[in-house]
Design a protein around this nucleic acid. Structure first.
Lengths: 232, 232
DNA sequence: CGCGCAATTTGATCCTGATCAATGCTGTGC
DNA sequence: GCACAGCATTGATCAGGATCAAATTGCGCG
């Protein structure tokens, strides 16, 4: 029996394009892997040997300069696809931010399988187009927004992305604290800021009564309207 | 007879995935359109009604904020694909920077055609993955690089992108002046800087003997090594 | 050829966010 | 319950790039 039958992302990941038999064939060339928070799955500039689906957890995609500056270029969640199919090198590192579970494939095996399953390639195309749109929108933030706009935009984006699915109850949303999977440094690396600037913006938003900060990793949005105004 | 037989991008655009008969079918649902420099093909936030291939010319993809700040999120050249297939809205405006010729399709027509031609979807997937890689690399520049690093990186990127193809002769490259398809303001919008900062960086590089500026739109790279060092 | 406009360059000043430095908090292991 | 390590906050100062303001250049056009 294939693991896939029980897989929580079976119907949301690109695997949703496949029927039971095809899924079994894909399963045969892949395997599960657990990652501890902080562990890396691939490194920037490395040959593209693996691709993967995220089953559980949150991972970052990041690039850096020689002298150690880092920019997080993407964050992936369960059902998202990782890696560079049909290419020789991986342009960014992939590191788990929380403990994570992924379903990995040899890149060449996956390429060959995908080329024989157009429905799978189609799902991957839709996902990639969506990711490109999201990434381009983020460029406006990096290139043109001020620190306060960046932080406000970030919090709003997080409140959408981290909402456990099926939880669309607004009252509940209002009460729930976001639990960020990021340290302050990582938030800075997402926004193109320093840790100090991020910290100061958080403190200011709290003082203004826009958010509350119950603990280091939690944020409660008290005044969404104000955040939206500040996000520009 | 189909226009496509004479098309200069026939073998480089996604059309290369199709045989003569398929190409004729695709041609039947598309048409050529000429754009004058400055003319827009689509607008940010608009319904996704069109997609297109670039036949000739250079176009920018851009987003902006309410208050008029702009960020160029992509630049497309002949054989590149434009627009958002399989989606409802276009996330950015598309505007010709030079006079241009494009081959446009109704988005829904194109979607339907693509779904029936996996080889075309595959080409589109490869192109989209490549574009995503390029875009992510640009995020490092926007988020983490200084003005001088940004300008140096830009000039190097341009010297690669604008090289007419088949012209790999290094001696010739060294002598040739790049003719930028961008105004200073557009360069600023690509790099997330102001026009004044871009101008000052250009002036400084010229004073340092790294580049020469024969005219407003031309740049000669005199010391590629120095530029590479500065690009970080 | 010279006029007029827009793009670019140059200059002076300001301000946001970076940097440097110190202090405070929190969760962990003993 | 306490000490320690790693994060995070807070404070003081600095600097890179933005902003505001002029001068200059180049170019299309009569």
């Amino acid at each position: 029996m294939s693991n896939c039958d029980l897989c929580v992302v079976r119907n949301r990941a690109i695997c949703a394009a496949l029927d039971a038999g095809e899924l079994q064939a894909l399963n045969a060339i892949g395997r599960r892997r657990n990652l501890a928070a902080g562990e890396s799955l691939m490194w920037e500039g490395e040959d593209s040997v693996l691709v993967a689906n995220v089953v559980e957890g949150v991972l970052k995609l990041s690039t850096g300069t020689e002298d150690g500056r880092e920019q997080i270029v993407g964050v992936v969640y369960p059902s998202d696809f990782i890696g560079r199919p049909f290419g020789t090198t991986t342009g960014y590192g992939v590191t788990a931010l929380t403990d994570a579970r992924v379903c990995i494939f040899g890149r060449k095996d996956f390429d060959a399988f995908a080329r024989e399953h157009p429905a799978l390639e189609h799902k991957l195309l839709e996902r990639t187009l969506g990711e490109l749109d999201r990434t381009r929108r983020w460029m406006l933030l990096l290139g043109r927004k001020s620190a306060s706009e960046k932080v406000a935009t970030f919090l709003l984006e997080m409140s959408e992305r981290l909402m456990p699915m099926g939880c669309n109850d607004l009252a509940e949303q209002a009460l729930r604290a976001l639990v960020l999977p990021f340290s302050r440094q990582q938030i800075a690396d997402i926004l193109g800021l320093t840790i100090e600037t991020v910290s100061r913006q958080f403190t200011r938003l709290k003082a203004d009564g826009v958010i509350d900060l119950p603990s280091r990793r939690e944020v409660m949005i008290l005044d969404r309207r104000a955040l939206q105004a500040e996000a520009g």
